[in-house]
Amino acid sequence: MCFVTYENPRNGKRTRVKRGFNWLVMGFGPLWFLFNGMILCALLWLTAAMVVGLLTAGIGGLLMWPFAGFFANGQRERRLIKRGWRTV
């Protein structure tokens, strides 16, 4: 597995973000986004899953979460960079 480490320049706190698929998003959906402070992403993915689910009798809504798993770590990285975290 490949990880990228980010450091907060203000307090020196470090966090690692995995590259690739995020299994927790596939299993827990919007809860992962909420626990990582990404409320807007949680609402957007949940809304998209509900709309797609309504259009496909529920099947498409379930398929949205594996799809979200491919993008979740990248969204987390963009959020950290936007908040001023640096790659170590």
Score class of each variant (00 low, 15 high):
M1R: 06
M1N: 11
M1E: 14
M1Y: 03
C2R: 11
C2P: 09
C2N: 09
F3G: 09
F3P: 09
F3A: 06
V4M: 15
T5W: 01
Y6H: 02
N8K: 08
N8F: 12
N8W: 12
P9T: 10
P9D: 05
N11R: 08
N11P: 05
G12M: 05
G12W: 00
T15H: 01
T15Y: 06
R16N: 13
V17W: 03
V17A: 02
K18Q: 08
N22R: 03
V25P: 04
M26F: 14
M26Y: 04
F28L: 14
G29D: 07
P30A: 12
L31C: 00
L31W: 08
L34P: 01
N36C: 06
N36T: 13
G37R: 08
G37D: 03
I39T: 15
L40K: 06
L40A: 07
C41V: 01
C41S: 11
L43Y: 08
L43V: 15
L43M: 14
L44H: 08
L44I: 13
L44N: 05
W45C: 05
L46D: 06
T47A: 14
A48H: 05
A48G: 13
M50F: 15
V52T: 07
V52P: 06
G53K: 03
L54Y: 14
L55C: 15
L55N: 11
A57I: 03
G58Q: 02
G60A: 02
G61L: 01
G61W: 01
L62R: 10
L63G: 08
M64L: 13
F67H: 07
A68V: 04
G69S: 08
G69D: 00
F70A: 10
F71E: 03
A72H: 11
N73W: 02
G74A: 06
G74E: 08
Q75W: 13
Q75I: 02
R76I: 04
R76G: 02
R76P: 07
E77T: 12
E77M: 07
R79P: 00
L80E: 06
L80F: 15
I81V: 13
W85E: 08
R86C: 05
R86A: 03
T87K: 15
V88A: 11
